[in-house]
Simulated scan of single mutants.
Amino acid sequence: MIGTIIAALVGGTILGVLGKLVAPGGRDNIPLWLTVVCGIGGMFIGSYVYAAIFNCSDMNNCTNGVDWWRHLWQVVVAAVLVVIAAGITGRKRA
């Protein structure tokens, strides 16, 4: 249980920062905690969308090695969530 929470926090931080780097525009100045939340959302939503589109019965891995396509989907979803969060919070750079 604690391992899953730590993995979600670490993975969410990495994916949130990657999503923030990929996100278009310069107004994505959101706090770190919201970036982590977007990354965690990107992890879960990206995995489910990927599994639904490519009919993967095993959510953990759809290939025999590292599933780079699933990670790409996660980063794209995290970037979309960062853009949405930036639009909702309306926080601008000073």
Rank of each mutant, 00 (worst) to 15 (best):
R70D: 05
Q74F: 09
F54A: 08
D58G: 08
V76H: 03
C38A: 07
G90W: 00
W73H: 05
Y48G: 08
L21K: 15
L9R: 02
R93F: 05
V66K: 12
D58W: 07
D58F: 04
V37Y: 01
W69S: 12
C38W: 05
G90R: 01
S57F: 11
I88P: 06
V83C: 13
V10G: 10
D67K: 06
T63Q: 06
L32S: 09
K92P: 01
M1K: 09
S57I: 13
G41I: 03
L81K: 10
Y48K: 15
T4S: 14
L9E: 02
F54L: 10
G41N: 13
A94E: 15
N64W: 09
W33A: 04
P24E: 11
W73S: 13
V22G: 13
V22L: 15
N61L: 04
V76D: 04
L32F: 01
G11N: 08
R93T: 05
N64P: 10
I84W: 02
A85E: 11
G25D: 03
S47H: 05
V66T: 14
N61G: 06
L15I: 15
C62V: 01
L72V: 07
P31L: 06
A79Y: 07
T35C: 03
C38Q: 07
G11W: 00
L81M: 13
N29K: 12
T13S: 09
S47I: 02
G12K: 00
R93H: 03
W69F: 10
A94K: 15
T63L: 02
L18G: 04
I6W: 08
I40L: 06
T35Y: 01
N61K: 06
G11L: 08
T4G: 14
R27H: 15
N61F: 04
G39S: 01
N64I: 10
G87A: 01
K20P: 15
G12F: 00
V17D: 11
V36F: 00
A94F: 13
M1P: 08
G25H: 06
R93I: 10
T4R: 10
G41V: 06
F44Y: 08
I2M: 14
A78C: 03
L32K: 13
V83A: 14
A51C: 08
V83H: 12
